[in-house]
Design a protein around this nucleic acid. Structure first.
Length: 887
DNA sequence: CAATTCACG
DNA sequence: ACGTACGTGAATTGC
């Protein structure tokens, strides 16, 4: 058998780490009997991670037997002077052992020996018997056990952080082999174990000596050849100490343990005892996990769900009527559902669950009809994904009107997981596993060969969708989010599905031409920069660039990052006057960005149909906005001319057609005017003033718009933006490059002129404190637990978020409504025009030539009338034969 | 896999 | 006296 995997844990050391990991919670982790439980709890958490990562067949947790060991007999002072283990930890040790027994894991201690020796002995047994071994400890002494088949994981400052010592890693860290490490320790001694080595020899010297002479014995064999030095003297004087230290440091790999390797095989978990133990300790989470794994069964076994496997013969028997509401789940491996391979599907109809790996069965007339009949309602998880994927099979789904993923996102978007299992767990349903558990991740991602394992997973998914529906709908109702769910998010998902499937045409030829032009420019800039730097280096490496600018050329350091010098734009901008190389670097950076992210990036994702098919993530952002991936169509350049060129590649489907763009004007400020009820700002929008000029007049106390200079307008614009973000004098001053005092004056003037905005900001923060969340005009929520934080920075961030989220989120609500209405209009008028992109406040359409006039009229109309606010909504249009010119 | 940088609203 | 603008995704380097 290939997987003989052995896990050896240093029980005392790991318990010690566990205790301190949750030390701050010491008093909140108590059993009903008053026993501290923090170390037991943290130990179990660490153990779970280890068992999952290592997946061992054999496990042993070794403990120290007592103070007296063969080492204390050799050297009385061994481990002397150590601080006593805290009583709060000591009292937990027997319970950790009890828990391990219930979990089917052997523990062991041996009189006169330390846990290290037990581990060393079993590591040796493991090697002899062809095991792959993992040792876990907080003590670096054990790293001497590292070998090609034995890895020693040492806990770092945290708990979850482990440093893996392989022989290679040992070489990197100490410059010696694991065996030589013993000799190194012999020279250095060990302060924490309280034995000395050779005077004045630390890690550096020890490593050097061992690398030269191979061992302590080697050194003393050649001691006469050494030149006269203080070191030589010390070596000679401390020879006895060195040899004693070597004995103390050497782990006994042949201690008289009474267990054999077969005795430490993992045993089945004793669920009944474990449950009682968790109850005694008051471990509610572990109890829940126990229920999840299907209480009383072996956790490696899948909980049994009844299902019928469909095949060519019985597929015809599947029936549903209009009275039925069914569950449907279509599985793919991977996130990108435009391309991901199908895994299988499950259907739940009238308490019967049908499953299969063969998704083509869905194309059978009877099933296809069920999926396409609007009157047969379907509950799904991720409506958009389901719709797009079914479309790949030629199935035009209708009647998908409940989406568990969207519901859970609206109820609480703090957790942005889109894994059905994880979400089910949040609502107490542990009957379904996570995809990670079933399919794995990274290189080991795969579809289970075992039919039962896969089908159980698929069946449990439709079960969970059904069983949690009632709970989720009730929560939506409690939150007054039924309308948000039914009339905004569900219809938006359908609209987005169509946009994604349709895609947008991108001309590779245009991009390739740009690629060539940029390549020439980049080469020129590179040569100039290397010339001035006097050497070649990797321009894309901030580290190497920092070295050139700040060390070689001696430019002043303006800002530092965690890892070194900052070379960001804001820094380089300030250095432009100091050296011409800086401007060239900025130019290079800008073009390199466009070349790699947009030219090359887009070329990579153009599909055989000549289009890009993005995915809009509808359940990700904290505010309710969409995001866009693979490719991201929401950050196509517009601010620089070189970048803007990219837009020339985005073209209509038909050669003489148009790209039509329509964007909301100042939608966030209009939302702010509405929600704050500020009369002055509302008046400005109602009158149709340029809002930034109006603000300039107000804060600079001017009489007429004619007195507003471009600089004043720029400053006023920054203040308007700043307000939306939850302004601070510091932020504004940094943005505008003015003094903090001046920035504060702007803000004071602003609030004087728009007093109700100030009130709104205070109210938004107070409301978040009272309710624990912020809310949009359509009742979209964002929870803000940090609003009560003790730390100023954390709390202040939550306060700004409380101000910003209702504004950004309401704007997101509005454009979603506009999109739904827009798609409806396009359908009603039987137009061929497609909505193709949404960029937060902007919609892009692919318009056939003869529909342009209609589109010019209806798009702004629909967008402006999406909702009724106390101020008008304005949308501006542009059109051309590509996206670049459509402005 | 984290950190840095920079593209967008 | 603190140390901050709000929301995203992708490419790249280097541990």
């Amino acid at each position: 058998m290939a997987d003989k995997k052995l896990l050896l844990i240093d029980g005392n050391s790991v318990a010690f780490r566990a205790f301190y990991a949750l030390y701050r919670q010491l008093e909140s982790f108590k059993s009903p009997d008053g026993l501290h439980t923090n170390a037991i709890y943290a130990f179990k958490n660490m153990l779970d991670v280890l068992l999952k990562d290592v997946d061992p067949t054999h496990v042993l947790v070794a403990f120290d037997a007592g103070k007296v060991t063969f080492r204390t007999k050799m050297y009385v002072e061994y481990k002397g002077g150590r601080a006593k283990t805290p009583e709060e930890l000591l009292e937990q040790m027997p319970y950790i052992q009890e828990m391990l027994h219930d979990l089917g894991i052997k523990t062991y201690e041996l009189k006169n020996y330390e846990a290290d020796d037990i581990i060393g002995t079993f590591a040796a047994k493991g090697e002899k018997n062809g095991f792959t071994t993992t040792v876990v400890t907080g003590d670096r002494d054990l790293t001497q056990l590292a070998s090609p088949s034995t890895t020693v994981e040492v806990t770092k400052s945290g708990v979850s952080q482990l440093e893996a010592y392989t022989p290679e890693h040992m070489k990197e860290v100490n410059g010696v082999t694991p065996t030589e490490f013993i000799d190194m320790k012999a020279l250095m001694g060990d302060n924490s174990d309280n034995y000395p080595g050779v005077t004045k020899v630390g890690p550096k010297t020890a490593s050097r000596l061992i690398q030269k002479y191979g061992s302590v014995e080697g050194i003393y064999d050649h001691i006469d050849e050494m030149k006269k030095s203080k070191l030589k003297e010390n070596l000679i004087n401390d020879k006895d100490k060195a040899f004693l230290a070597k004995k103390l440091a050497t782990i006994d790999r042949d201690s008289p343990v009474t267990l054999d390797i077969d005795d430490i095989k993992r045993q089945p978990v004793d669920y009944e005892k474990l449950r009682q133990f968790y109850e005694k300790m008051n471990f509610r989470k572990f109890l829940a996990d126990l229920n999840a794994s299907g209480a009383g069964q072996d956790s490696t076994e899948v909980e049994k769900v009844e299902y019928i496997v469909l095949n060519d013969d019985n597929v015809k028997d599947v029936k549903a009527t209009e009275a039925d509401t069914i569950e449907f789940y279509l599985e793919m491996l991977g996130a990108n559902y435009h391309l991901a391979p199908f895994v299988g599907f499950s259907l739940k109809i009238n308490d019967k669950i049908y499953v299969s790996r063969d998704v083509e069965l869905l194309e059978e007339d009877n099933i296809k009809h069920i999926l396409e009949d609007e009157k047969i309602k379907k509950n799904v998880f991720d409506l958009k994904r389901t719709m797009v994927a079914a479309h790949r099979l030629g199935i035009h789904t209708h009647g998908l009107d409940y989406d568990m993923l969207l519901a859970s996102y609206l109820i609480n978007n703090e957790n942005n997981s889109n894994d059905l299992g994880e979400i089910a767990h949040l609502y107490g349903d542990y009957s379904v596993k996570t995809d990670l558990e079933v399919y794995g991740k990274g290189k080991s991602e795969h579809i289970p060969d075992d039919d039962d394992e896969l089908f159980n997973h698929l069946a449990s998914k439709v079960n969970s969708i059904e069983s949690l529906k009632k709970t989720l709908l009730e929560k939506l109702k409690d939150h007054e989010q039924d309308a948000l769910f039914d009339t905004i998010e569900i219809p938006t998902a359908r609209v987005l599905a169509r946009m994604e499937m349709n895609g947008m045409k991108v001309e590779a030829s245009t991009l390739i031409q740009l690629q060539n032009e940029f390549a020439v420019k980049l080469k020129e800039l590179e040569d100039k920069i290397y010339g001035q730097a006097g050497e070649k280096f990797n321009l894309n490496s901030p580290k190497q660039l920092g070295h050139i600018l700040f060390e070689k050329l001696g430019l002043p350091v303006i800002k530092k990052t965690k890892t070194g010098y900052s070379t960001a734009v804001e820094v380089l901008d300030q250095l432009k006057t100091q050296s011409p190389i800086v401007s060239e670097i900025l130019d290079y950076r800008q073009i390199a960005k466009i070349q790699s992210t947009y030219v090359k990036g887009l070329l990579d994702v153009i599909q055989p149909d000549g289009r890009v098919h993005t995915r809009y993530l509808q359940t990700l952002t904290a505010t309710g906005r969409l995001s866009s991936v693979d490719p991201n169509l929401q950050n196509i350049p517009t601010r620089t001319e070189e970048g803007k060129q990219i837009r020339k590649a985005f073209v209509p489907s038909e050669p003489d057609g148009y790209i039509f763009s329509c964007d909301y004007s100042q939608v966030e400020l209009r939302v702010l005017a509405h929600v704050s009820g500020d009369q002055n700002m509302q008046e400005a929008f109602k009158t149709g003033y340029d809002i930034h000029s109006h603000t300039a007049m107000k804060i600079f106390h001017l009489e007429s718009p004619d007195e507003v200079t471009p600089l004043m307008r720029r400053h006023a614009k920054a203040v308007n933006f700043g307000i939306v973000y939850g302004i601070s004098d510091y932020g504004l001053s940094k943005n505008l490059g003015i003094s903090r005092k001046r920035a504060q004056e702007f803000i004071d003037n602003y609030f004087e002129q728009y007093p109700q905005i100030k009130d709104y900001m205070n109210k938004a923060v107070q409301e978040a404190r009272d309710k624990g969340y912020a809310e949009t005009i359509m009742h979209r929520r964002r929870y803000l637990p940090d609003i009560h934080a003790k730390k100023y920075t954390v709390r202040a961030f939550a306060e700004r978020t409380a101000i910003n989220s209702p504004i950004q989120g309401s704007a997101a609500d509005i454009i979603k409504i506009a999109m739904i209405n827009m798609q409806k209009k396009l359908d009603e008028l039987h137009l061929k025009t497609k909505m193709v992109v949404q960029v937060h406040d902007e919609l892009i359409f692919d318009v056939p030539k003869d529909e342009l006039e209609t589109i010019k009229k209806i798009v702004p109309e629909v967008m402006q009338s999406a909702v009724k606010l106390d101020v008008p909504l304005i949308a501006d249009s542009g059109w051309a034969h590509n996206w670049y010119d459509a402005k």
